[in-house]
Design a protein around this nucleic acid. Structure first.
Lengths: 129, 129, 129, 129
DNA sequence: GTGGTCTAGACCACG
DNA sequence: GTGGTCTAGACCACA
């Protein structure tokens, strides 16, 4: 069952963080069509959050066509985001290796995030060209 | 002079994006103590944003001790965040290589961001242990 | 509940006066961790001021780690400044005695403030040595 | 010759700080009618400040009738603020004693300022009644 | 022209 | 109803 996390200092709205985490989990194949999301109550137990906020996130996911609420039984994944490739596990482990090297080079979390943001940004720039 | 960018869809508040970009630039050594930030009005010209929002970001940076606003002349970097290591260029190019491999494997931007978020998250979790 | 006051003639920015009053109240033990500050709207009702200005003061206090804004419920004290000593009540009454003597000697408020500013200034100077 | 000081962190406009310091010095009898204020150039040498700002402060003091600019020779005190009493030296030394006791009780500058602000505030309140 | 403060008012996220 | 973000626009202090 998906475990949500909330970063209260990030400035990103809570409902948005939930949505992003579900989307990411679908994209990574962690959640597959038919899988159930934790119930609102379970989420409330996991992290301190207002049930309405969870509802809102689930509603928006449903509007995006990604999930389906079945009255009485829960919320379920409907669609895959089909980015899953067979190379994915390898890519993930390579990334984790890189992270370890960055840490060994003395970079803290913020430094690593700076590098990642920089690299992602130049990638997006190139994409535009 | 630093060029700001705004991602209006990300859910991250604009002032926060500006702060992060300055912090990152300092961490990557792109901005060094004594360097000037673009004036509030220049930022307003660059990206469409209200001067107050820029001002707020600059003020928060000043409260963090990173910058100093000098009335009549501009806003300047005060402190370094000195995460810069000699390995940095190599790390950056390795990351960019990884990104290219991920793209070649058919991952789109959202898929890549999912992988990166996942990897960063597990790294932070491990850090706690 | 803390009652704010604004001296519009002092030249001190309004948001700064609010911050100082909260800090002082914390230092005097009038406000303790867990206590609630008046809501932004209450402050607006109390003194004539723009909500944004109050908000700015509260936000700066939060950045200083002294308070915490909880959406939906209010703003609360987080940290003590713990300068409170058992001698404090005695010191306060001695100060008030001195003030009465100064008034009896014919000094007006501005004259008293001049003396206080002078004494505080020499104290700070000595502190540097 | 009066020595100006500027507290850049106080939020109080520089020209206002200069004015206040002259007023206080007159009130404490440090400056008496006929005494000369430092020339603009001298002030600029003392503290880092724009000559225009000093000019502005001197102009406002003249508007208040407190000083008089004599072309070619300088700016001079015209009026006393006549708060000077024979008790004043004694009051000042008593205040300084009190400050020493407060420091000995472990209070830092901010704690002392909190007490002083509190006492001055209640005095003003009573004054109104 | 540059930073800084303040008001007014809209809209959002959350409980 | 509470905090938070953003825009618009005025005015001030300073170089």
């Amino acid at each position: 069952m998906l475990a949500f996390r909330l970063d209260r200092k990030s400035g990103v709205p809570a409902y948005r963080q939930l949505i992003d985490q579900v989307r990411h989990a679908i994209q990574l194949g962690i959640l597959r069509p038919g899988d159930q999301l934790p119930t609102v109550r379970e989420v409330v137990r996991q992290i301190t959050i207002n049930p309405n906020t969870v509802h809102r996130a689930y509603r928006e996911l449903e509007l995006q066509g990604l999930t389906e609420g079945r009255t009485g039984s829960g919320t379920f994944i409907r669609k895959s985001l089909s980015e899953i490739s067979s190379h994915q596990p390898k890519l993930l482990s390579q990334l984790e290796q890189w992270l370890r090297r960055a840490q060994d080079a003395g970079l803290g979390i913020e430094g690593i995030e700076a590098l990642v943001a920089e690299a992602l940004h130049s990638m997006k720039e190139e994409g535009r060209l």
